[in-house]
Simulated assay, not measured.
Amino acid sequence: MLSRLLRQCLFSIVHLVVSLLVAVQNVYHCFWTYYCGLFSEQEAKTDIGVLIKHIPNISKKPKHLVLLTDTSQHSLKDLALVVIWSLVAGVPYISFYDVTGELKQSESKLFVEVEKCKKGVPGCIKWSNRPNLNGYTNGIQAHTITINIFANSDGRPKLAECIRKIASNEVDCKREGNEFTAQELDETIRRFYPSIPDPDLIMYTGSLCCTHGLLPWQIRLSEFVQLSLDQCINIECYVGALYKYNKCDQRFGK
């Protein structure tokens, strides 16, 4: 009886400490985002101006950026701006993970919103489901960003389908032994997804850090960075997340 009460007491203390640490981290994140001096009144007023000023200071940029998207909190304009910011920042792939399941149905509306926000911004935007952009501007190869929209069906269900087809020999797999190595499985799984690199950086908003079923195999080495506590998406949060990723030391299990 005493040991049970002791365990409950220790659990309550640990829970309280963790809650306090999370609260301190959230307060610090808000303070860091708005008051650390990255964005003074003397800086350029436009989003592009802010990016142009800070991007040279960021040496490590993600090759594939994913935004956990909640259409009840994030507007199509918010998402379109993230695409444009990533285009200017030199990110070659951006994906939206549709948490609510509504974004895929609004892909054509997002396409229109992105085209509106892109006016005057150099570079090309390609959509996985809209291969009508060739990546060239006036015959000169320009920076290109490729957009994908994923939903829950692209996560565990698709991975399970992949494993089932491997087990039933429906997929021609190259393997040296009876068991798959991580590299061999990775090469096989890539056949079931668009030709994109694994996500380097995953951005989310709100206080809860959750994968929501996002591509469980591909995100095993990804960095999760919080954009904001209040579901807000703005240029300050975006650049701040890039700075955080820039400082990440990815050890890859070493």
Rank of each mutant, 00 (worst) to 15 (best):
Y238D: 08
L159Y: 10
I140R: 15
T205E: 00
S75F: 06
F192I: 01
K53M: 05
Q183N: 05
R190T: 03
V50C: 04
T33F: 03
V22E: 09
S106Q: 13
A89N: 02
E102S: 13
I202G: 13
Q183H: 02
Q25H: 13
D230S: 14
Q8K: 15
Y93C: 06
K254Y: 05
K165V: 03
V91D: 03
Y204A: 05
L110K: 10
G177Y: 09
P62I: 04
P92W: 03
E236R: 14
Y204F: 13
H74D: 00
K254Q: 09
S40F: 07
C124F: 00
D78Y: 06
T100Q: 12
K104Y: 07
L5V: 12
D172K: 15
I219K: 04
P199V: 02
I125K: 15
C248N: 11
D249A: 12
L10E: 06
L51D: 07
K254L: 09
Q250L: 14
D200E: 10
I196V: 08
S95R: 11
D186T: 11
E176V: 04
P131R: 07
F96C: 11
N57H: 05
G101T: 09
T69N: 08
I202Y: 12
G123Y: 05
L221A: 12
I84Y: 13
F224V: 02
F31D: 00
L159M: 14
L185E: 07
I235Q: 07
W217I: 01
N246I: 00
N148I: 02
I149M: 05
Q231S: 09
K109F: 10
E223L: 04
L215G: 04
K45Y: 00
F224K: 07
L214C: 12
P56Q: 08
L110H: 08
V88R: 10
I55C: 01
E43R: 08
G253D: 09
F224W: 08
L21R: 10
I84W: 08
I140S: 15
S75Y: 07
A160H: 15
P122D: 02
Q73G: 01
H143F: 15
T46E: 06
Q141G: 06
H143R: 13
G90D: 03
G177A: 13
E236K: 13
V239H: 08
I13F: 10
I189F: 14
V239W: 07
I52C: 09
G155A: 01
E43V: 10
K63E: 00
K116Y: 01
P194E: 06
K53S: 12
R156F: 14
V225Y: 10
